[in-house]
């Protein structure tokens, strides 16, 4: 860190970092380029690294041939509602876990960690049976409820880390000034925590937006499918229509990338704080 960097060292560093950046970005570039080629141009030699003329035909096809508008609405609705509710619930549980000592605390944290270790597929069968009995199969509300539950453990752990970074003195001062504990949490603590809460929400939203296996299990009818489930349907047929597929992939990736760009610093902080503290 303090050592002066030699010219060779600097050159190696810049080369390496640049190469990795190119490798990271290239798949995204390639799928985007593919999506803007006219359907016939995708399968012609030599491969074009820049489309001769930009065509929006693949995108138009998504909305006319497939019900992509429906999938988009479903995904947006499910991810937004589940992400919001899960974040709100996690704020409460994370607050208690960060600020209070009580006997069952360690076991509760362990219970949250265990959900991350066990393969979720073991729960798919019984979950389907249970949701059928509750008449929540092929129902967006059903999927939302399940997603809320899936998001809670990790976002609780993440938010707990953010709470612990805020000094106790802040609430204590508010409570001395006559705030109730509840008032102190909502009027003083949450405004300070805003970036962390936004990061947790974005993390939850993106996870719900991307989720595949639960949605494949629980949603049957075309009108209720989320985007990943629909994409999975595109594969099932033997010949993949790479034109539609690439356009759909771009439309799926872009919103999450924009959201992540907003919050990447705080998400990184949330991911790392737990592990580095040990």
């Amino acid at each position: 860190m303090i050592r002066k960097e030699s010219f060779a060292g600097r050159a190696t560093r810049i080369t390496f970092l640049t190469v990795w950046l190119v490798i990271t970005v290239f798949p995204l570039y390639w799928i985007t380029i593919t999506s803007f080629k006219a359907p016939g141009d995708i399968f012609t030699f030599p491969l074009a690294y820049w489309p001769k003329d930009f065509s929006f035909e693949n995108y138009k096809g998504l909305f006319s041939k497939a019900q992509f508008g429906d999938y988009l609405t479903n995904s947006l609705l499910v991810a937004a509602v589940a992400g919001t509710v899960a974040t709100a619930i996690s704020v409460l549980s994370a607050y208690v876990l960060a600020r209070f000592e009580f006997r069952s605390k360690t076991s509760l944290l362990m219970a949250a960690l265990v959900t991350q270790m066990i393969p979720s597929f073991i729960a798919l069968g019984p979950l389907y049976t249970m949701m059928t009995q509750l008449k929540l199969v092929d129902n967006r509300l059903g999927l939302i409820l399940v997603y809320i539950a899936v998001c809670i453990p990790f976002s609780t752990v993440m938010l707990r880390g953010f709470f612990e970074n805020v000094p106790d003195a802040l609430e204590e001062a508010a409570m001395i000034d006559g705030c109730s504990r509840f008032g102190a949490l909502f009027r003083v603590l949450l405004p300070v925590m805003k970036p962390g809460i936004v990061a947790a929400f974005i993390f939850n939203f993106v996870n719900c937006w991307n989720e595949l296996f639960l949605s494949v299990t629980l949603m049957n009818s075309d009108a209720n499918k989320t985007i990943p489930t629909a994409l999975n349907g595109f594969i099932s047929s033997f010949n993949i229509d790479w034109g539609s597929m690439s356009a759909a992939a771009v439309l799926t990736i872009v919103p999450t990338m924009v959201l992540f760009a907003f919050a990447s610093r705080h998400i990184v902080q949330g991911l790392t704080s737990g592990a580095v503290k040990g």
Binding site: W20, F260, V268
Partner: peptide
Amino acid sequence: QALIFFPWAISGFLIGILFRW
């Protein structure tokens, strides 16, 4: 850092599709 972080915004399933292509 933000740029190399972006694979994390994509689902594993979609990464599979990107590389399949």
